[in-house]
Design a protein around this nucleic acid. Structure first.
Lengths: 149, 149
DNA sequence: TTTATTAGTTCACAATGTAAACCATTTGAT
DNA sequence: ATCAAATGGTTTACATTGTGAACTAATAAA
């Protein structure tokens, strides 16, 4: 009789929980003048002025149209600049402005806080186990999606 | 140095994995003339002709506008009918058509298959542990979202 | 030197989330 | 019994997001 639970697609739960996470992060960061693409900022920072949009798309696991929108958004708000690559004229290297570097610590802090909220009541072991299994599931599904056809 | 991984917001991973799941489910069910709201059908079926749109919204954890769209969609495709409640003239009881009942087993089967793909390589124990932790995280976040203000 | 790829942009369309205004019906208070 | 408030559902509107296609400019391959 509890087959019902079993049948409930975990896809829904995963999506919903993920959205919940991002919403809470948004609330914590509502003092900023941006309300999304926080993680993009972190990745661009880690790229040390060498990250291109295609690479960012790869790391964010999204498409290039979305990346253009994200970079446009962050650039309009004064957080990111496109710097034409000297080596390859097609590429743009993404760099953070000083304004962006100033808000990065707060973003990371809020991310850690939200993560802490999410993990509330779980042991370290459970947390690492969860992340590990989540990674496996993610790989299983992305493999299946690519091999699908 | 692997702090980077730690910093990657699990919200993104959860969302992405959930979407992956639903995409794969979609592929498996591409022989149908609907391409979403499968789980709504299952819930309506479980409601035995007594489920209202508000209740469905609650079970799908979404808002009533989305429910109207979902029911419109499923009704237009001939899978669901709105039956005005005899008790309360405001409510509509959702019922499945024969067409819907015919496709339900296939939907459930595909859901189980996709779940099996997702869980590939995991022990039963890991699976139940994962679902259990996921539930806790989901609760933690939804509590925080409601208490947020 | 053509041709094919690649990086990025733009356009277009559908799905989804969210908020607000709105009906009709029912409930509650007086 | 009546009037106000709450509820179930619909509609409109707007922004975000995913997806596909067509396109430019620049590089790589033939």
């Amino acid at each position: 009789m509890e087959k019902i639970q079993n049948i409930q697609p975990i896809g829904r739960i995963l999506s919903h929980t993920g959205r919940s996470f991002l919403q809470l992060l948004n609330e914590k960061l509502n003092y900023l003048d941006i309300e999304r693409s926080y993680y993009a900022l972190i990745l661009i920072d880690l790229g040390h002025g060498e990250l291109t949009q295609t690479e960012l798309a790869c790391q964010l696991e999204t498409d290039k149209v979305s990346i253009v929108r994200i970079v446009d958004y962050l650039a309009a708000k004064g957080y990111v600049k496109r710097v034409k690559s000297a080596v390859d004229g097609r590429k743009y290297c993404l760099t953070l402005t000083g304004k962006a570097k100033k808000i990065l610590p707060g973003i990371k802090k809020s991310m850690e806080e939200v993560t802490a909220v999410a993990y509330n009541g779980l042991t370290e072991l459970q947390q690492t186990e969860f992340i590990s299994i989540l990674g496996i599931i993610k790989d299983n599904l992305s493999k299946a999606n690519n091999t699908g056809s």
